Simulated scan of single mutants.
Amino acid sequence: MLFLHSISLFQFKNYARTEFAFDKRIVGICGRNGMGKTNLLDAIYYCCFTKSYFGRSDGAHVQHGASGFRLVANMELNGRKEEAVCILRETGKKEFYLEGELYEKFAQHVGRYPCVIIAPDDIRIIMEGSEERRRYIDALLSQLDSQYLQHLIDYNRVLQQRNGYLKSMAEKNIRDTSLLDVYDQQLVQYGEYIFSKRAEFLKELIPSVISFYKQIASTDEELEIEYESQLLQHPFAELLQRNRQKDVLLQRTNAGPHRDNIDLQLKKQSFKNLASQGQRKSLLFALKLAEFELLKKHKGFAPLLLLDDVFEKLDEQRMHNLLAWVCVQNDGQIFLTDTHEDRIRGHFDALNQPYQVISLQ
């Protein structure tokens, strides 16, 4: 089992020096907007992923007027207590330690403390382009397979280099394509691994998403989810050769896992165009809970679940269905934020489960 006993924040966002202790599996965090509820969840996320969930640079998370931050999480993993420390130095250098040992690569830590977060802007996974859905699946697979994360890092590095060279070819009228051959060989090495893992895990994930959607929405609506990849039809090396002339003309790489998508349809039409607001929210939670379930299955214990401002997203029935599943049917630790303490306590009391409420003043 994974359990966060405490976390201390020093010069992190709006926290000058604060420590929080957690003694229950279900934790409610309440306070007015701007008091730091989301910042606390993000600090927990930092200690699991070595970075913020919200995509900004590390320096953007330093308290105003300060020149660095420090986060210390005291975790318990399968009966063993551990200390994880994230430090952003005054120089801008970030360091991450586990039990006093410095990680050489941040990727080595990702997946040790699996974590799933649901935040207000996550509806982008459904409403925006394929990049958001790739980011969703990459966050999941990076926690399950350290090789996947390293291959993804290497793939994106080579892709950037290849695209840079394609632009140089146009700007400098370069005819020699031998360097493209080298980049292509490296892209194939990393890209085929990424594709194979996405295809493998999506066979598990997609049925789970559909099942959760039906539970949360209390419906049998015809939801279809399909993995779309050019590599399903042709080998990656063949695709790169076939698209080379187009790549040179457009100065970017037009084939590969970076173009993959997860297609979402409702009643044979685009989900985002047809679905109501409630249906979109139900699918978002279904995606996240399926991620939670897959992590739990492969890790052997439940990940941390961070729910930010979920009461504003779902109606009473959907909220009851969600909380009953995450709080009663699962044994993982849950952190949930809301602006109204009475509302948190009311929902938690109805579950008949021990809980803790932290009020931010």
Rank of each mutant, 00 (worst) to 15 (best):
Q186G: 03
Q11N: 15
V326G: 02
Q356N: 07
I174M: 05
L250R: 12
E99N: 15
S282T: 00
W325V: 03
N74S: 10
I118D: 03
P303F: 02
A60G: 07
K24R: 15
R162E: 06
V158S: 09
D342C: 04
E99D: 15
F301I: 04
N14W: 06
F22S: 00
G191H: 03
L40C: 01
A84L: 08
R80N: 11
R345A: 09
K288Y: 01
T337W: 04
I44C: 11
A199D: 08
C327H: 11
S130C: 11
A139N: 15
E99G: 10
M319D: 04
I153H: 12
I117R: 15
R198L: 02
Q356V: 04
K313A: 12
D338M: 07
G65F: 10
Q317M: 08
N261H: 13
C115W: 12
A275N: 11
I7K: 10
N352T: 12
R175W: 02
A66R: 15
E200D: 05
E200Y: 09
L71F: 05
Q333Y: 06
K105V: 00
I87K: 15
R112N: 14
G300S: 03
I334P: 14
H64V: 09
L283W: 08
F201C: 05
R124I: 07
A66V: 04
L306P: 14
V182N: 07
A324W: 12
E171R: 14
H5G: 09
A139Q: 15
F195D: 08
L40N: 00
R133V: 11
G79P: 00
K51V: 02
I344S: 09
T339W: 10
D58G: 02
Q233I: 03
I358G: 10
F201W: 13
Q269P: 01
L284P: 03
R244Y: 06
L274F: 04
V357K: 00
F96G: 10
I262C: 14
R175F: 03
Q245D: 14
L102H: 13
Y103M: 10
A217G: 09
K172I: 02
L264W: 12
D331S: 07
Y45N: 11
F212W: 15
Q277A: 07
L77Q: 12
R25L: 10
D338F: 04
L239W: 07
K94H: 04
S282W: 00
E293Y: 09
K267D: 09
A66D: 07
I153W: 08
E316M: 10
L294D: 08
L240E: 02
K297A: 11
H340A: 00
I225H: 09
R17L: 09
A255G: 03
A170G: 13
H234D: 02
L307P: 05
I210A: 13
V328S: 13
M35W: 00
A237P: 01
K24H: 13
K297M: 08
L294K: 14
S52L: 00
I87C: 12
F285S: 05
L223Q: 12
D154S: 15
L239T: 03
G300L: 05
D331K: 15
N321Q: 13
K268P: 05
H109S: 10
L283G: 06
E76R: 13
V182H: 06
L336W: 09
Q161G: 08
C30Q: 13
E101S: 01
